[in-house]
Design a protein around this nucleic acid. Structure first.
Lengths: 256, 256
DNA sequence: GCCATATGTTAGCAATTGAGCGAAGAAATG
DNA sequence: CATTTCTTCGCTCAATTGCTAACATATGGC
């Protein structure tokens, strides 16, 4: 059994029974109590539980049960790699915009563990919840219309709020990117908000996994001129690199 | 039973009954009185209770700032009753403002089952998530600074967003309500937002359970002049009814 | 083989609890 | 009001249990 599987099961047990006991878990999984303690330690660090002598209870403050878990997490490994690269480019104390994409959720989680004193502006409910307990951070929600199915806030209200800020880095994702149609997204409202996000920073990072290259979605967000840097999960084909070069856009991917 | 569970239960009992007795708790949990005393000592150190000979009472100054998970589970019956009354006053298709209180979450849940085509404006993350799958509704988030511990969005951004709407009914709650100090809340930022919420509707409903009567929290939200109707969970004492009469504020409570 | 991660082992330390006892606080009594 | 009686409190000690930290040992990817 993998460690992460065990931790997930412990979490499930906690959701059901509100409490767990170290000694019981140790017997149930056939590992030492130390291992269980380390599991609980990690879960406590992530804000899911509160440890107590001999066991732990569920942290009900953070336990917002989502009505539907739309964790359609495709290409988790790729998004993880992208998150690491983004993390290496962000410095303590910076102000960032993050959009409502699943990649951005990975980035937020990674930053939470590594960075101090960040200011985050986002229209993603998932990110806001994820960062609710980030101690010395300022987390700003854009507001807007709650969009069914994507846990995002969208619309003119979102734009208006974004326009009253200027940040160090804007980090967005997209559904498609290709030669003729530039950066595209499947949803008009999302696209409009992302466009505004790009306007609110001098450093515009497109964090996008390689599967999006050569695809066109529905609405245009912008073109390469609007982008400062592309972060992706594997080295793009030569034709893309030439294109980026032509527009003086830096492209970064993980070293082998 | 874990120590933290026992302490949480004692805290909940205190919320309900305002007082606990050492000897009773000792018998109830099958531990020595000394252990209970140590529990109370810890709770006193954290500011939740005041010890006294033979037991302890709830620290009334503090009962409003209990951990969210304790507060959420207190007086559930009362909040449910209030939610039902609010529900009976809302019509399909209306536009409402809901604040970030635990009572408002109950109201949102009740409305979701009963009403169609509502427009909700709120600064409560919990409500937004609760209503994400409300099919024909429009749910608008105010945006603002994510406030740790209350799952609310607060600050000037919240106000600004609220000011661009006008709704049929504004429904808010509070931490205290008494003769001299009017409607009060424990948090400055929350109070300011609630004030703005009241300005955005001609029909201003104060949904507040009876335990808040005669208590003063920290900051003033407004006075009876700013309120159209009070909805509570049991018939208030005569002195309150006279006061409401004088200000022409209707007061509603469940029959019996 | 080397690095990272996960797990086990151990020894010393810390926290929780219960028991006993004298002191202090309430309550009853004259 | 003083005295007695009973309860509760605060303290210390001891036993138990759990915890921390450091080191050792797999395990698996590169």
């Amino acid at each position: 059994m993998l460690a992460i599987e065990r931790r997930n099961e412990i979490l499930e047990k906690l959701q059901k029974e509100k409490r767990v006991v170290v000694s019981e878990l140790s017997k149930a999984y056939g590992v030492t109590e130390e291992t269980i303690r380390r599991d609980l330690e990690k879960l406590e660090k992530d804000g899911y539980v509160i440890k107590s002598y001999g066991g732990a209870v569920l942290n009900e403050n953070m336990n917002i049960d989502m009505p539907f878990n739309i964790r359609k997490n495709t290409n988790v490994v790729g998004k993880q790699k992208i998150a690491e690269l983004v993390n290496s480019m962000v410095k303590d104390g910076e102000r960032l915009i993050l959009d409502a994409s699943s990649t951005a959720v990975f980035i937020a989680k990674m930053l939470k563990e590594e960075k101090r004193n960040l200011t985050i502006i986002t229209n993603s409910i998932e990110i806001i919840i994820e960062l609710f307990d980030a101690q010395d951070w300022r987390v700003l929600s854009t507001g807007g219309l709650a969009m069914e199915g994507s846990l995002a806030l969208v619309g003119p209200q979102t734009d208006q709020m974004l326009r009253s800020y200027y940040v160090d880095k804007a980090i967005i994702s997209c559904k498609g990117f290709d030669m003729e149609n530039g950066i595209t997204d499947s949803n008009e409202l999302h696209a409009r908000n992302k466009k505004t996000m790009l306007e609110r920073s001098g450093c515009r990072i497109l964090a996008v996994d390689s599967s999006k290259f050569g695809h066109t979605a529905f609405t245009n967000i912008g073109d390469l001129e609007n982008i400062s840097m592309i972060i992706t999960d594997e080295k793009p084909e030569e034709k893309w690199l030439q294109l980026f070069d032509r527009y003086h856009v830096e492209c970064v991917w993980p070293e082998e």
